[in-house]
């Protein structure tokens, strides 16, 4: 979290300076007022959201996912994989290593991509943040609009890769040096 904090802090100071140049102290004060009005009502929601995030992190385990992905085929597999992606907890440094580990499992490539599409679209642990920091109606509509997208994307991936498996894909497209390392 140190890097995002540093980047945002720099962006904040730059933006404050620009605001000062454009509208003087009055506009800078206005910016702070907007922040002060926004934060208090969101505090209970943020605390509740992190409580849910913590519980989800412990409830959902990696082992169960591996079993489910191997269990289904056809449309059921697409649906299950997209949902599993959405349920899979954690930031990129947790789910990419998980996928990397699945490379050797000889899974269809389109399912591999579908997992990521599901994770990026449905991410259950991100939802509390989306609702609390943006707004419930916008979050709801965004989720309704994007609901079928991972399934449509799975169809496109299936068209491209047919029944190619992860083992074939990574053997074909990965540089030999990298292959040896994995």
């Amino acid at each position: 979290m140190r890097m995002p904090f540093v980047i945002l802090s720099i962006a904040f100071f730059v933006m404050t300076f620009i605001t000062y140049l454009v509208g003087g102290w009055n506009q800078v004060t206005e910016g702070f007022q907007v922040t002060l009005e926004t934060i208090p009502p969101t505090i209970p929601l943020i605390v509740a959201a992190f409580f849910v995030i913590g519980q989800l992190r412990v409830t959902i385990k990696e082992d169960a996912f591996k079993k489910w992905i191997e269990k289904y085929d056809g449309f059921k597999a697409v649906l299950a994989t997209a949902l599993l992606g959405g349920l899979f907890p954690g930031p990129p440094y947790t789910y990419y290593p998980f996928l990397h580990e699945l490379k050797e499992k000889d899974l269809p490539v389109y399912l591999y991509y579908t997992f990521l599409a599901g994770k990026h679209t449905y991410d259950l642990t991100r939802l509390p943040m989306e609702i609390s920091l943006i707004s419930p109606p916008i979050a709801l509509l965004r989720n309704v609009i994007t609901l079928p997208i991972p399934l449509l994307m799975a169809f496109v991936y299936k068209m491209f890769f047919k029944d190619m498996t992860t083992l074939d894909f990574f053997k074909k497209f990965t540089h030999p040096d990298r292959r040896d390392r994995s």
Partner: peptide, 23 residues
């Protein structure tokens, strides 16, 4: 633990968002 770790980021993001809104 996640909340404590991310709160400074959220706070700066809110400050930045306030400036963006007026600028």
């Amino acid at each position: 633990k996640i909340m404590v770790r991310t709160l400074p980021v959220i706070l700066v993001a809110f400050l930045l968002a306030g400036m963006i809104e007026v600028i």
